[in-house]
């Protein structure tokens, strides 16, 4: 089933085209890996898929419907984990529960704890910590836990392992696979690490110079 359908997309920054996609279809319930050199337009594509910016030309269909970035409901189905995630100036528990809070959902302490355990952090040790008491890798994993807690239909991850050690990278991989298999979350992951990306993805997309160069399944 088609999750995203992008047609005739053109995005320019300051008059300079950064992304041109004639057609791209991403399927639901799978992990799609996106790779390509620096400045090839990967992050721009992720921002468009997260409905944070609209293309200057072209259309994006999500679950078969045309989209607009002004729709909060879309952003409540799709969530993005950026390369250097921002943590709110609050405790880890409050960071994880923020997404639930804005959706008007009552958070139980179990949700935050489960999300933390899912990314390999001890709930007992980390839930009450403040944002400034975390290392870079811990902050990255807390940010991922905050995204998992809202149980999104689509989880977008932009270079989720770029600043992590081997063990943390493996934990992110396991969390991604669990989200797909147990929660039926569709994942789209951008990474420089082609080997890691291939190991976790069902299909891959290569972007170069703002254009889709190839797509590969399996």
């Amino acid at each position: 089933m088609s999750l995203y359908q992008l047609s005739n997309i053109v995005q320019t920054y300051g008059g300079r085209p950064v992304l041109t996609i004639d057609s791209l279809e991403l399927t639901a319930g799978s992990i799609t890996g996106i790779f390509g050199p620096n400045g090839s337009g990967k992050s721009t594509l992720m921002r468009m898929l997260a409905f944070l910016e609209a293309p200057q030309q072209g259309t994006i269909h999500f679950n078969g419907n045309a989209t607009s970035i002004t729709e909060t409901s879309l952003r409540r189905e799709v969530t993005l984990l950026t390369q250097q995630p921002y943590l709110l100036k609050r405790s880890v528990k409050e960071n994880i529960e923020y997404g639930l809070h804005v959706r008007g959902l009552k958070s139980t302490s179990g949700i935050a704890a489960d999300a933390l355990e899912e990314v390999g952090l001890s709930a007992e040790k980390f839930l009450s910590r403040q944002w400034f008491e975390l290392s870079g890798g811990e902050a990255q994993r807390v940010a991922l836990a905050a995204r998992l807690a809202v149980n999104p239909s689509v989880l977008l991850m932009d270079e989720p392992t770029s600043s992590l050690d081997e063990e943390s990278t493996e934990r992110i991989r396991n969390a991604a696979l669990r989200a797909k298999n147990e929660r039926r979350t569709s994942l789209i992951i951008v990474s420089h690490d082609r080997e890691w990306l291939t190991s976790v993805s069902d299909s891959t997309v290569l972007i170069r110079n703002g254009k889709i160069e190839s797509t590969q399944c399996g």
């Binding site: 952003r75 993005l80 250097q84 995630p85 997404g99 804005v102």
Partner: peptide, 15 residues
């Protein structure tokens, strides 16, 4: 304020 803050809030579902 951190440019990532607004994106984070939006992507966590805030209106």
């Amino acid at each position: 304020s951190d440019s990532g803050m607004k994106d984070t809030l939006l992507t966590l579902g805030a209106d």
